[in-house]
């Protein structure tokens, strides 16, 4: 049973939870800006941020100003947004597909993005990092279009949609492997591997600006539809009987999740685990109703990825571990505790 069982207590509980989460997130982001190969004091971080915002003109070394503002802060904020976005997408797909194993990549979006990225890295279609993102984005949408087509615009029911997603993933993964094995050299294969596991290296303010719009607009749309999402608890037909325009809601929400996921994947690669596990963890705390669940997912996902990014930079000296490795290694033990505590009491 969820902790937030009583409705009135639930609203207050959620407010406290979100308030705490925001404070934790702020601390995590500050830590992310302070910690690294070049360690910077928290006081300096604070001044660098206020300098960057134009609120102060404190005299701190330009190198520290630049490291904090240009490199680490943008990176931490992109990590937070990516975590929030992936967690929201996971929660929505788990509800719409009525499948606890659903996650943001179930609709083939990551496989498509990989193919697009590999086409850029290995085949050299276009050049430079901008076109890598563009390639990934195009691939992601190609895969989503295929899934939408195979599942009649997502009207054919959850299992049909999942199978269409599996088919698209298999096809695009095969294409990726084909391109790498036939055209790639060892270095390119390594690059691809690294990209597939996800990395926040190289993200800058323009990435943040795009992602903040996509994630917040996406979250707003999903919150507006949260009542309808709740109505899917007992399936599509039941939702229809409760007055929900099922086909339209499914298509809009699949589109929104694909958009968020594709944007994230095209920037930072395929970061697994967040979208699968955070919704379950959040549901355990705030309950399954989406008006509460979605903000909680966003908060928990954001904190989780910022912390995971810090871990990825400090665990091994002088190198950065792929973020996907960290999310799984940090996340699994954490999730094991939740699974254990939430086991059915028979």
């Amino acid at each position: 049973m969820s902790i937030a069982d009583d409705k009135e207590a639930g609203a207050g509980w959620l407010a406290i939870f979100l308030g705490l989460a925001l404070i934790v997130l702020a601390v995590a982001v500050a830590l992310a800006a302070a910690i690294g190969d070049y360690s910077i004091g928290v006081g300096t971080v604070f001044l660098a941020v206020t300098n960057g915002l134009g609120l102060t003109a404190a005299d701190i070394p330009p190198i520290e100003q630049s490291v904090v503002w240009d490199l680490r802060l943008s990176r931490a904020l992109v990590a937070a947004l990516a975590g929030a976005g992936l967690a929201i997408c996971g929660a929505i797909l788990q509800a719409l597909l009525r499948n606890a194993l659903a996650e943001p990549f179930v609709l083939g979006v990551s496989a498509g993005a990989s193919t697009g990225a590999v086409a850029v890295i290995v085949l050299g279609i276009g050049a430079g990092s901008v076109s890598l993102s563009m390639g990934a984005f195009a691939g992601a949408f190609a895969a989503f279009a295929m899934v939408a087509l195979l599942s009649n615009g997502a009207t054919s029911g959850p299992n049909h949609t999942i199978l269409a997603g599996v088919a698209a993933s298999q096809l695009f993964n095969a294409l990726t492997s084909y391109i790498v094995t036939t055209s790639g050299n060892a270095q390119q294969a390594r690059d691809v591997m690294f990209w597939l596991l996800g990395s926040f290296g190289g993200v800058r303010w323009p990435d943040f600006q795009l992602l903040v719009v996509v994630v917040f607009v996406g979250l707003a749309i999903c919150l507006l539809m949260s009542r309808s999402l709740d109505a899917f608890t007992f399936g599509d037909e039941d939702a229809a009987a409760l007055g929900v325009p099922v086909a339209r809601i499914r298509l809009i929400l699949f589109g929104v999740t694909a958009m968020i996921t594709a944007t994230i994947v095209s920037m930072v690669g395929t970061i697994g685990f967040v979208g699968l596990v955070v919704p379950h963890a959040a549901r355990y705390v705030v309950g399954p109703m989406h008006l509460r669940l979605l903000p909680a997912c966003a908060a928990v996902g954001a904190i989780f990825l910022v912390l995971a990014d810090i871990a990825s930079r400090v665990v091994a000296e002088q190198q950065t571990i792929p973020i996907g490795v960290v999310t799984a290694m940090v996340g699994v033990p954490f999730f094991a505790i939740i699974l254990y505590r939430a086991r059915p009491q028979q």
Binding site: D5, M225, G235, L242
Partner: peptide, 29 residues
């Protein structure tokens, strides 16, 4: 209203949550 036979869910909802769903068509977003 329509009552299905054996409508089931894996979601961990409470009795009150389920009955509250019945108000869905009466509430705006």
């Amino acid at each position: 209203a329509f009552v299905q036979q054996n409508a089931a869910t894996d979601t961990n909802v409470s009795v009150r949550d389920v009955v509250r769903l019945g108000r869905t068509p009466h509430r705006s977003a």
